[in-house]
């Protein structure tokens, strides 16, 4: 299966430097259609008003966390199958389990490298 790299990708992080890093790494693997949000609620509004093919979200944000965003996405009839990758410094097993139970598509622990990002994206988009 070929990945459509023209799809819109929403990246969510309350730390703008991290958004900039992820955007640049995505650009290097040919995902150029990237939107940003700085917390879960802003992301949810964008997801509900536009069409995205993938969400890459941090966990620890305020007021709406990445986990809450994931739960909202999975509870939304239109968004519930949207591929959702959590990228976070939260690396305890209980975090991974909670995210998985909430329906996360994959989980990347910070700090990560470009190869890990590419590999997880390919996996959740059906080419891994």
């Amino acid at each position: 299966m070929t990945i459509d790299k023209s799809m819109s990708v929403l990246i969510v992080d309350d730390y703008k430097t991290m958004l900039r890093i992820i955007r640049n790494l995505l650009k290097q693997i040919d995902f150029n259609n990237v939107e940003e949000a700085t917390d879960g609620s802003e992301a949810l509004a964008k997801l509900r008003s536009n069409h995205f093919g993938l969400v890459i979200s941090d966990w620890n944000m305020s007021p709406m966390t990445g986990l809450q965003l994931l739960q909202e996405v999975r509870a939304d009839a239109r968004l519930k199958t949207l591929p959702f990758i959590m990228v976070t410094a939260e690396s305890k097993a209980e975090n991974v389990v909670v995210a998985k139970q909430a329906g996360v598509s994959n989980y990347i622990v910070k700090p990560f490298n470009a190869e890990t990002l590419r590999e997880k994206i390919e996996k959740v988009l059906g080419n891994g």
Binding site: I21, L25, K110, P111
Partner: peptide, 14 residues
Amino acid sequence: ATTRIYEACSFQDI
């Protein structure tokens, strides 16, 4: 080289 720099810059978040 720029990829390696982007990766390394994530230290700031951590």
